[in-house]
Amino acid sequence: MSTIDNSQSNKTDISLGELLGRAAEAPDLKLVFLYDGKPVKPGYHVTEVKAGQFSALDCGANLEAWSEIFVQLWDIDEGERTHMAAGKFSAIVRKVSEYVRLDGSAKLTFEVSDGVRPMQLYCANEPVTEDGALHVALTPRPASCKPRDRWLAEQAATEASCCGSSASKCCG
Score class of each variant (00 low, 15 high):
Phe33Thr: 01
Asn10Leu: 15
Phe33Glu: 03
Asp75Arg: 07
Phe70Ala: 00
Gly87Tyr: 05
Gly43Trp: 02
Phe70Val: 02
Leu34Gly: 00
Trp66Val: 10
Met84Ile: 11
Pro42His: 05
Thr82Pro: 05
Gln53Met: 15
Lys41Gln: 13
Leu29Tyr: 10
Gly37Ser: 08
Gly87Leu: 12
Glu68Met: 08
Val93Met: 03
Gly21Met: 05
Gly60His: 10
Thr47Ala: 10
Ala26Lys: 05
Gln72His: 14
Asp13Arg: 07
Gly21Lys: 08
Gln53Ile: 10
Val40Asp: 01
Gly87Gln: 08
Gly79His: 13
Ala91Asp: 13
Lys11Gly: 03
Ser90Ala: 15
Gly21Ile: 07
Val93Gly: 01
Lys50Pro: 00
Cys59Ala: 12
Ile4Gly: 00
Lys88Met: 14
Tyr35Thr: 00
Leu20Ala: 04
Leu20Gly: 00
Ser90Gln: 12
Gly87Asp: 09
Ser90Cys: 08
Met84Pro: 03
Leu73Ile: 10
Leu34Arg: 02
Pro39Ala: 14
Asp58Val: 03
Phe54Glu: 05
Ala56Asp: 11
Ser9Lys: 03
Asp28Ile: 08
Gln53Trp: 11
Asp75Ser: 05
Ser90Glu: 04
Leu19Ala: 05
Arg22Lys: 15
Lys11Trp: 05
Glu78Asn: 14
Ala61Gln: 13
Cys59Val: 15
Glu78Gly: 06
Tyr35Asp: 00
Ala51Gln: 10
Arg81Trp: 12
Leu31Ile: 07
Pro42Ser: 13
Gly52Thr: 02
Lys50Gln: 12
Phe33Pro: 00
Gln8Cys: 07
Asn10Tyr: 14
Arg22His: 07
Ile4Gln: 02
Gln72Val: 06
Lys50Asn: 11
Asp28Gln: 13
Ile4Lys: 04
Lys30Gln: 14
Thr47Pro: 01
Thr82Asn: 13
Thr12Asn: 11
Val93Glu: 00
His45Cys: 08
Ser9Ala: 15
Phe89Lys: 01
Val49Lys: 00
Asp77Cys: 09
Asn6Arg: 12
Val32Ile: 09
Val71Arg: 03
Gly87Val: 10
Gly43Leu: 06
Glu25Cys: 03
Ala24Asn: 14
Leu73Tyr: 03
Asp58Met: 05
Lys50Ser: 10
Ile92Arg: 06
Cys59Glu: 12
Asp5His: 07
Tyr44Gln: 00
Ser90Thr: 09
Cys59Pro: 07
Asp75Cys: 07
